[in-house]
């Protein structure tokens, strides 16, 4: 195990960087973080659109949600990989492809969490805000979402943890994220698959567990600072 780490540790962490492109765990982290940061606003927008009074907005978004939710992530990745270049006319990098697929896929799931959070609040809050003369968006931003987001936090974290694990599917399109690198290492070493894949498994576990703990901490902190009566 020791010589495994000595020989391949850095490769596992950063891929061929700095002599080649960034890869390994660093790339996985970069991909997961970018996907989370982009999927959340998309999920908010889609979730709000799903509840819009305008059919022209609600229907296409609802269709998108149903299509993407009824499709394996692997399929979405293939679409992004094979169709996107045909549509746009130029080839997207593997990282870009994977990022687009993750953002769309997770954005759709986040949208449903957002929708549930808003509906769970009851219509009295929206009505009271509208009765004061606030616009629909003002009411969402100032009254509904600040409360709904607190209730959504556990489900959001669930989705974020999924996103981290989903980055491993980048393997399929040859993105040199940490699973891909681990497989490369295993091919080269050949005799130590148990150690290699246990290390890989532990790495994912540490990431996801870390994020969950962080979320618990945020939640607990949020509760301590939350006004009384506003509890997730």
């Amino acid at each position: 195990m020791r010589d495994l780490i000595d020989t391949y540790g850095v490769y596992f962490l950063v891929g061929q960087y700095p002599r080649g492109p960034l890869g390994g765990l660093a790339l996985t982290l970069l991909l997961a973080a970018s996907a989370l940061l982009l999927a959340l606003p998309l999920g908010l927008a889609l979730g709000v659109a799903r509840l819009s009074g305008w059919r022209a907005l609600r229907w296409p978004v609802t269709a998108l949600v149903f299509v993407v939710r009824g499709t394996p992530l692997l399929m979405v990745i293939f679409w992004a990989y094979f169709f996107l270049p045909t549509l746009t006319g130029y080839k997207t990098s593997q990282f870009g492809t994977m990022l687009i697929a993750l953002v769309v896929f997770d954005g759709v799931y986040l949208a449903e969490i957002v929708r549930a959070g808003i509906l769970g609040l009851g219509k009295g809050q929206m009505e009271a805000a509208r009765a004061l003369g606030l616009s629909h968006l003002q009411a969402l931003r100032r009254v509904v979402l600040p409360q709904a987001l607190r209730h959504m936090l556990p489900s959001l974290v669930n989705q974020f943890v999924s996103t981290i694990k989903e980055t491993s599917l980048g393997y399929i399109i040859g993105l040199s994220e940490v699973s891909f690198i681990a497989t490369q290492i295993n091919t080269e070493v050949f005799t130590k698959p148990v150690q290699v894949y246990l290390s890989l498994g532990f790495t994912y576990f540490a990431l996801c567990f870390g994020l969950s703990r962080f979320a618990y901490w945020v939640e607990a902190r949020g509760l301590r600072h939350a006004p009384p009566g506003v509890r997730a």
């Binding site: 805000a129 009765a131 606030l134 616009s135 600040p146 009566g229 506003v230």
Partner: peptide, 19 residues
């Protein structure tokens, strides 16, 4: 919105903003 901004409305369930 302009109309509602000039009408006060009080609900049975208060509907204060808890946050």
């Amino acid at each position: 919105n302009a109309l509602r901004a000039r009408i006060g409305f009080v609900f049975q369930q208060f509907n204060l903003f808890p946050h």
